[in-house]
Design a protein around this nucleic acid. Sequence first.
DNA 1: AACATTTTTGCAACATAGTTTCAAATACAA
DNA 2: TTGTATTTGAAACTATGTTGCAAAAATGTT
Lengths: 143, 143
Amino acid sequence: MRTDIELETEVMTLLKKHDLRLTQVRKEVLSVFLIKEQALSQSDIEENVGQIDRITLYRTLRSFEDNGLIHRAIDGTDKLRFALCVDLCEKENHKHNHAHFHCEKCTKTICLNGVEFPKIIHPAGFKVKETYYVMQGVCSKCQ
Amino acid sequence: MRTDIELETEVMTLLKKHDLRLTQVRKEVLSVFLIKEQALSQSDIEENVGQIDRITLYRTLRSFEDNGLIHRAIDGTDKLRFALCVDLCEKENHKHNHAHFHCEKCTKTICLNGVEFPKIIHPAGFKVKETYYVMQGVCSKCQ
DNA sequence: AACATTTTTGCAACATAGTTTCAAATACAA
DNA sequence: TTGTATTTGAAACTATGTTGCAAAAATGTT
């Protein structure tokens, strides 16, 4: 666990590191990501911060994404989710090599940072820039 | 290539095989999938059939999916796309083990049926039912 | 600490997509 | 060909994505 002060500090450091101004909205949203430790959709976040403007949240997520703070966690559902980048991600240059797992029971999506996926043979003539690996099923807690 | 008669026959056979009534809408929509040979979003289909009700199309796609005729082709974009099942798919039991490729230039998504992906180690305690492998980049035609 | 500049926020307004209900139309089987 | 079950299309509503703009807030500078 992490104290409130530690959380506050971590949030500030992360925002600064990614060239983002320290605003109230951003601090709150980033805190949710740090506490929850799972991929979050827009509505997930709305439920976890007190009273936030829908459009502002929408733009906050985009700016986090643009600045390499979060990435899209494709999980095979209709909902777009975002997850904290582990490290090394930069503007316009996200580097992710992990799978995402979506639990159909609790509907949570988590990054499986320990599960690297093997390089598969790319079809001839195709230039592959980004690869996603998604697993759906039941997570350990919901068995 | 396939003649109109052959297409008509194929459509009928496929619908019957999947316990779907032979309606005008279904025949048209399925024809588009057979002709296009790529993953299609709702709007892709609307552009390729003459005048179709939005809600009916929405329900048609769901019924096709439920009856194992098409599957969701997750391609990492915001748009939900569907692609024809290759074979063997049944209600509630889709079996897909191929990757999807989304071209950022022509925005087409295709199934890479020849590209099987290796089984990766699943995290302990997780029950994996479905796996998706998605690649984004530039396809051979758009190089 | 106050100001100027730039960014961010919140609102209005609009576009698109997902979903349910229900009556009319259609498909199919007896 | 008729009866039954399914499908369709319209209305209505909800949710989500997006832009423009003025007010508010954040940051750098005096």
